[in-house]
Simulated scan of single mutants.
Amino acid sequence: MPLLSRRTKMALLVAGLLGTFIGAAPAAWALDAPKGKVVLTVKGKIGASNRGGTAVFDLAMLQALPQKTFTTMTPWEKAPVKFSGPLLRDVLAAVQAQGNTLKAVALNDYKINIPLEDTRQFDMVLAHRMNDQPIPVRTKGPLFIVYPFDSNPALQNAVYYERAIWQLGALEIE
């Protein structure tokens, strides 16, 4: 049983293509309700929601979005790590995010502000897998915002390392 309807998946695909090719805003659609445990809550300046004025996702909903995989070094591991998950910009397109800042909040209440421009400029992944394995909470999961650090030397500094938040639980669009 799909967690995103065929219509929603098609709308996400079309919105992503339009955004990529012509910079258009995504068309309106409704998010399906999560069927499993909620792993991500998105609120603030969003145009699509599925729980009041908030958008909530279970892991299957995030896995239903197009997936991106890359391998990169991080300051927290001794060897390159393979990360997989949807591009953060696709998650934000699904909720029709508007604004300038993304406030990311971890399960332990750590907070960091990320400019929304980063999601357009870099292929940031909302990782739910590390080295092809689900990310347990005790390590850095279930969700981890990861920049492709090895793709651009400018990303290899404290500013971007601090924005790579693990144990992500919520996003607020400001």
Rank of each mutant, 00 (worst) to 15 (best):
Q121N: 13
L143R: 04
F21H: 08
W166Y: 06
G23S: 09
Q96W: 02
G169N: 05
R89M: 11
A27Y: 14
S49Q: 05
K82N: 02
L4I: 10
M61Q: 15
L107C: 08
L65W: 07
D123I: 06
A27T: 15
D118M: 09
L102Y: 12
A48Y: 09
I165M: 11
P142C: 12
P148Y: 06
P75E: 08
A24M: 13
K45V: 13
T101A: 11
K68W: 00
T41N: 04
F70W: 01
Q121H: 04
P2Q: 11
Q98E: 15
L31F: 10
G169C: 02
R138S: 07
L31G: 09
G16F: 07
R163N: 03
P148T: 04
G53M: 07
A127M: 03
K37N: 10
N131P: 05
V137Y: 12
G141D: 01
G16H: 08
A27L: 15
E162F: 14
D32N: 13
D109S: 07
V14Y: 03
T139V: 12
G52N: 12
A154F: 05
T20M: 06
A154L: 10
Q67K: 11
M124G: 05
E117G: 14
K43N: 10
Y147G: 08
Q121L: 10
P86Y: 00
L116W: 09
A97H: 01
D123F: 06
S5P: 13
K43S: 13
L116S: 08
M73N: 12
G23I: 11
V56Q: 14
E162V: 07
A93E: 01
N108K: 02
P86F: 03
N152K: 06
P75K: 09
R163E: 05
A64T: 03
R163Q: 12
W29I: 04
D150W: 14
P134Q: 04
V42D: 06
A104Q: 05
A33L: 11
N100S: 15
F144C: 08
V39Y: 07
V146M: 15
Q98L: 06
L13S: 10
L92Q: 00
T69P: 06
A127F: 01
K35P: 06
R129D: 08
N50C: 05
G47T: 15
R163S: 09
I165D: 00
F122K: 08
I22F: 14
I114D: 10
G52P: 01
T139C: 03
V125H: 03
P86R: 01
K78C: 00
K140E: 14
L12Y: 03
T74M: 00
T101N: 10
K78M: 07
R7L: 14
I112H: 08
E174K: 10
A30W: 01
Y160T: 14
G23K: 14
S49V: 02
D58G: 11
L87A: 13
I22S: 14
K82W: 03
L88D: 01
L143G: 03
K68T: 15
S84N: 06
A55Q: 12
T71N: 00
V81T: 14
E117K: 13
T41Y: 01
G85A: 04
G23W: 13
A158D: 15
K9L: 13
N131W: 07
P115S: 09
T74I: 08
A55Y: 10
F149R: 02
V39S: 11
D150G: 12
L168H: 10
R138T: 04
L3K: 10
